[in-house]
């Protein structure tokens, strides 16, 4: 099992490094800009106060404290959209490659010919993606602490820890759905297309839900509703319903993926 995890990590190392470095660079950039924004926070607050509430809600802008605090600023500018988008792409690519990618490339034959059960093979592949998620999330959230120290910014660490946990749960749910698709299909492209479409639909549904009262129920089908970095920072808590939704989806889709992968015929053409 360790053999497969190490092999898979070795293959994915470049992606992990690039995505983590990108995220780290974004975090550093926003952190370096924060002091100047903070200095002008009063003027920005006036501007944002004139924005329609729906727009502020849709894009996670807290009108009163947007540029006052580092964690508020980061949650609105980085952790609300760019960050989950980046790790979703990383995880979709990881899950898509894990099974469908190996079938697509024909290399699954090497793995299936080895004396290892499909269940072990499944968990090895699954854990590799989880490790990617952990590495990425840890790099791109916990690094905020030393970066803030470097720029002499004081902030509430709890916000970052809560965002780390909530982001990890969001990532786990996205990963589990994509992993199930990877267990079903034999082409990576299909996995990417369906997972990508699902994310876009969820994002658009969340935006639409905040634009019109009659569409507000749409938010319940969106992961972006259950992962709201700005609300986490403001309320200093993760909504229990978000934890339940993300964990339930992860569990259901992981079990489905395992059942499908254990039973399916695998033929490389």
């Amino acid at each position: 099992m360790i053999n497969i995890i190490l092999k898979s990590l070795k293959q994915r190392r470049l992606s992990i490094i690039i995505y983590s470095l990108f995220s780290l660079a974004m975090l550093t950039l926003y952190s370096s800009l924060f002091p100047s924004f903070q200095a002008e926070s009063q003027s920005f607050s006036e501007v944002f106060k004139n924005l329609p509430e729906a727009i502020s809600k849709a894009f996670g802008i807290n009108q009163t404290t947007f540029f006052n605090y580092y964690d508020n600023f980061l949650s609105s500018e980085f952790y609300s959209l760019t960050w989950p988008l980046v790790f979703s792409i990383l995880l979709i690519s990881s899950a898509g490659n894990a099974i469908a990618g190996e079938i697509d490339k024909g290399t699954i034959q090497i793995l299936l010919a080895m004396p290892v059960s499909r269940m072990k093979l499944f968990w090895s592949k699954y854990l590799t993606g989880l490790l990617e998620l952990i590495i990425f999330i840890a790099t791109s959230t916990l690094a905020a602490v030393p970066i803030a120290l470097f720029y002499d910014i004081s902030f509430n660490h709890t916000s970052i820890y809560l965002i780390t946990i909530s982001g990890a749960l969001f990532g786990l749910a996205v990963y589990s759905i994509t992993f199930m698709l990877s267990a079903i299909f034999s082409e990576r492209s299909r996995v990417y297309a369906i997972s990508g479409a699902l994310l876009v639909i969820m994002y658009v549904a969340n935006i639409f839900a905040s634009l019109k009262e009659s569409w507000s129920d749409l938010k319940y089908i969106s992961f972006f509703h259950y992962f709201n970095a700005s609300a986490i920072v403001t309320d200093q808590k993760i909504e229990p319903i978000s934890i339940i939704i993300f964990l339930s989806i992860s569990l259901i889709f992981t079990i489905l993926a395992l059942a499908i992968f254990s039973r399916r015929d695998i033929a490389v053409e």
Binding site: Q11, K105, G106, T107, Q109, I110, A113, V268
Partner: peptide, 11 residues
């Protein structure tokens, strides 16, 4: 068993 598929694919 040692298995050689009809089309061998590698990393």
């Amino acid at each position: 068993i040692g298995y050689l598929p009809s089309d061998s694919y590698f990393y």
